[in-house]
Simulated scan of single mutants.
Amino acid sequence: MTPPSITLIPSSTTTTIPPTPLKPPPSVQQPLPPLEAKFFNRRNAVVWLSLIAPLTHPASALSFGISGPKEWLRDQKKKTAKYLLAPIEASRNILRYANLLLTRTEPEFGEKELEEVQSLLRSAARDCVPQERNSFVQFQSKSGVEVCTFQLVVKNASSLLPDKDPVKLAAEAKLIDLIRSFASLSDMANEFDVQVASNRQKVANALMDTVTCLDNFEQGVKECLEV
C-alpha cells in the first residue's frame, strides 16, 4: 500500500525578521564647539582678527584647497564686520558723553569733570595718539607691535584689496585724518583752560569735528568690507 503523500502548506503567519543593519563605529573625534562672540571684547576682537589676517590672504586660502577663495573670504569678513566696527561705535559713544560733560553750565564743571573728559578722550583715541599712550603701550609700540586699534581695523578690513586700490587708499587717508583730529583734540583739552566757558566750547567744537572724522573713517572701513 502506497503511503499517502504529505503536502506542506506555507503558513501565512510566518514572520520574516530583517537583518540588523551594521552601525558604523562611533567617531572618536567630536566636533569643536563654535566660538562664541561674547567671549571677545571690542579690543580682543580686533586683535584676534589681526592675528588671522595672514590666513585671510587669497594665496593662503589656495594652499588649503579652498575653491573661490577671494569670494569666500570676503563673505567671512562681512560676517565679522560688526566686531571690526565695534571699536568705532564705542569711541563715538565715548566722545558724545564727553561732549555732554563739556557743555555743562560753568558752575557744574570743575577739576573732576576736566580729568574725566581727558580720560574719555584718551580712551576714545584707542592708543592712536602717541603722546597719550601709557608706558606699557609705548613699550609695545617700540617693539614693533601695532597698538593703534583704528590701524588694526583698517588693516583687516582692506586685507583682501591690492595696495593701490582706491578704496583702500581712501580708508587709509581717512585714518590719517582721524588720528590728526584726535591729536589736535587732545592738545586742546590738555592746554586750554576748559573751566572758561569759551575755551570749553572750542574743545566741544573740536570734539564734534573728531566725531565727523570718525564717521568718515567708519564709512571708509565699510567700503573696504563692502557692507
Rank of each mutant, 00 (worst) to 15 (best):
117 V>M: 11
57 H>Y: 06
72 W>D: 02
39 F>S: 05
34 P>F: 02
71 E>D: 04
155 K>G: 06
75 D>K: 13
89 E>N: 13
37 A>V: 10
86 A>C: 10
163 D>N: 15
131 Q>C: 01
142 K>R: 01
133 R>S: 04
138 Q>H: 04
120 L>Q: 07
113 E>R: 13
223 E>W: 14
149 T>L: 13
210 T>R: 05
86 A>Q: 12
75 D>I: 08
158 S>Y: 11
45 A>F: 09
212 T>G: 11
182 F>I: 10
105 T>P: 09
37 A>F: 07
70 K>T: 14
157 A>R: 13
84 L>D: 01
219 Q>Y: 06
202 K>C: 10
27 S>G: 02
179 I>T: 11
87 P>D: 03
110 G>H: 06
28 V>T: 05
180 R>Q: 09
125 A>R: 00
120 L>E: 06
203 V>P: 06
70 K>Y: 05
16 T>H: 11
206 A>C: 07
35 L>T: 02
152 L>V: 05
95 L>A: 11
20 T>N: 12
222 K>D: 00
188 M>T: 09
201 Q>T: 09
125 A>Q: 00
191 E>W: 09
226 E>K: 15
97 Y>I: 13
201 Q>V: 04
210 T>K: 06
31 P>T: 03
53 A>K: 10
210 T>A: 11
54 P>G: 07
147 V>R: 01
162 P>C: 11
45 A>Y: 06
100 L>C: 14
96 R>V: 11
67 S>N: 09
117 V>P: 10
220 G>M: 08
178 L>M: 10
155 K>F: 10
174 K>E: 00
60 S>K: 00
40 F>P: 01
197 A>L: 10
49 L>M: 11
168 K>Q: 09
72 W>L: 13
201 Q>H: 08
178 L>P: 12
28 V>F: 04
72 W>V: 09
217 F>S: 03
78 K>L: 03
141 S>V: 00
191 E>T: 09
1 M>L: 14
219 Q>T: 01
8 L>T: 10
70 K>M: 12
80 T>Y: 06
29 Q>V: 14
91 S>F: 02
136 F>P: 02
63 S>M: 07
25 P>L: 15
212 T>C: 11
118 Q>H: 01
162 P>L: 11
201 Q>F: 07
61 A>F: 03
41 N>Q: 02
196 V>Q: 10
66 I>G: 01
2 T>C: 12
70 K>H: 09
18 P>N: 05
19 P>N: 09
210 T>F: 04
164 K>S: 15
136 F>G: 03
135 S>D: 04
32 L>V: 05
69 P>I: 06
58 P>W: 06
168 K>T: 05
118 Q>V: 01
